[in-house]
Amino acid sequence: MVNPRPDPRSDPRSDPLYVRTAVPADLPRLAALRAEAAAWIALEHGSAQWSDPYDAQRGLALIALGLTVVAALSPHGEAVATLTLRPTGSPRLWTGEELALPARYVSSFTVDRRYAGHGIGTRLGDWASWRAARAGAALLRANVWSDNAALHAYYRARGWRWVRTAAGSRSGALFERAADAVAPPLVHEAGRLRA
């Protein structure tokens, strides 16, 4: 089923974005966002990104740790985006020297396709960069799907620097950007969030 586009009279680029810690009740929405993104990526970009079944147990574990957030267009609205912000990176991907630098690591970054092109991903990424800086990190990092050139272009267009592609990993394209001490405009935290 194709979701209808939002009302064109309402432009989410000028609406506040509300970020909150995900809760177990969000799990079906997170799984749906990922499935929708995987189908779109396969169709539009020919990438197998996220083609494996969603791991609900892993999703719940990240929620329990307070690492996954959702973003909505109203304080208690439906999630239109999500990401996980971790305090450590994978030693399979990042070198010991890189892991020694203060950084935060973004994963499972997904935006509802109905809101594509409305700047929600950019704002949520800016929020993650600001949260990383608040936690004392100098860098925000991501490992993204290696064969998804469009995703690599997306990150580069938003100020991320390609570090390298780690051999032997489907999601080994490594990107980083400086953490930003300035809070992004129109992004509000709805409730207490983990640093």
Rank of each mutant, 00 (worst) to 15 (best):
A56T: 10
L193E: 05
T122K: 02
L151T: 00
P6H: 06
V106Y: 01
V80H: 01
E97N: 13
P91G: 06
L43D: 14
G77S: 05
A39Q: 03
V19N: 01
R34L: 07
T21S: 15
R123Q: 13
S171E: 09
I120S: 00
G191V: 13
S90Y: 10
A135D: 10
L65F: 13
R134S: 05
R9L: 04
V23M: 15
S171K: 02
R92D: 09
W40R: 10
A173C: 04
W130Q: 10
S171F: 04
A79K: 02
A181I: 09
H45L: 10
R5H: 04
S108E: 03
G66T: 03
L43R: 15
A153R: 05
T82R: 11
S47G: 12
V106D: 00
V182C: 08
G159A: 01
I63Q: 13
R5F: 04
H76C: 10
V106W: 06
D126M: 01
L140M: 06
R158N: 03
G136T: 13
G125R: 03
A150G: 09
V163R: 14
G46R: 05
A167L: 10
E36L: 06
T88F: 03
R194L: 02
S10H: 10
A35L: 08
Y18A: 04
R113D: 02
W127N: 11
V163C: 13
R177T: 07
A138N: 07
L151H: 00
R123M: 11
R170D: 05
N3D: 12
A133C: 07
R158V: 04
L67A: 06
P24I: 12
R170T: 07
A103W: 03
S10E: 08
R34C: 03
A31L: 10
Y105T: 03
D26N: 09
V19D: 05
P102G: 13
Y105N: 01
A166P: 06
